[in-house]
Write a protein that binds this DNA or RNA. Structure first.
Lengths: 130, 130
DNA sequence: GTGGATTTGACAACCGTTCCCAGGCTTCCT
DNA sequence: AGGAAGCCTGGGAACGGTTGTCAAATCCAC
């Protein structure tokens, strides 16, 4: 396998920097906007490309919002789920060991293999609920 | 509150009929295509409208596929989750009572209210796995 | 059957995302 | 440091799913 060279460009650094200081899930366009208002102008295509690359590399988590747009967030590396505030986007990473085994067992009982699952919890956080 | 009259049109019936005989999740465009090849021509807009209406009325479940398109399926009325074959779309409805309470409890512990969750399991069904 | 509101359908518009490609910038080598 | 090679960038066009528009068709109550 041929190693793919990766270059550290200003744009790539800028995108990573934004993600590092963000506690909430944000869309590619949100991030593009933030970069722009920070003075760190980066092309929209580039933002998309880099977010996707980071996502593929497992460095950021990607989920799909209600309206279908993809939201990104820098997360801890292990397998976990998200508790997301539907108002401000603030996110808490949670683990549910029981869920994992239940999902796998259930799928296997029905003859399914190569099992994955998605689980997200949405609510309104205490700050946003007054 | 003013009651909204609902009319039973040929198109509405055709869409419901297709859903009734479908065991898998299907996109609006899939359904439009099936109707068309059945000779029951229905406009694409109408298919979208009716699927959305059925979804709002809770008569069909809607989930979002990996590529972001919305998939519909007629399901049983109670709260349940889906075990979906990622190859053929065949779907089994499953229940996970433990998951429900765990999700609610976890969210509440973090001060979140008005909690919802989404949980889908994807795998390859025995038929598709050979 | 008739009137009048609901629905339909063809097409345009939308929106997030991806593609394209000429020019720019990193890297590596010397 | 200087220069060649090729990955990266960015602006705009293209794309695919979905929604909006509005005149014409349809359904239902009377």
């Amino acid at each position: 396998m041929t190693s793919t060279p990766v270059r550290t460009t200003r744009q790539r650094r800028a995108v990573s920097a934004i993600l590092a200081e963000l506690d909430a899930f944000a869309s590619a366009q949100d991030i593009h906007e933030k970069l722009r208002s920070n003075g760190d102008a980066v092309g929209l295509s580039t933002v998309y490309r880099n977010l996707q690359a980071l996502s593929d590399a497992g460095e950021v988590d990607a989920i799909r919002g209600d309206d279908g747009e993809v939201l990104y967030r820098r997360c801890s590396s292990g397998h976990h789920h998200h508790l997301v505030c539907r108002t401000c986007g603030r996110t808490v990473e949670v683990e549910g060991p029981t869920v994992e085994s239940w999902a796998d067992r259930t799928a296997r009982e029905h003859g399914f293999v190569d099992v994955e699952h998605t689980l997200e919890i949405f609510g309104t956080c205490d700050t946003c609920a007054h």
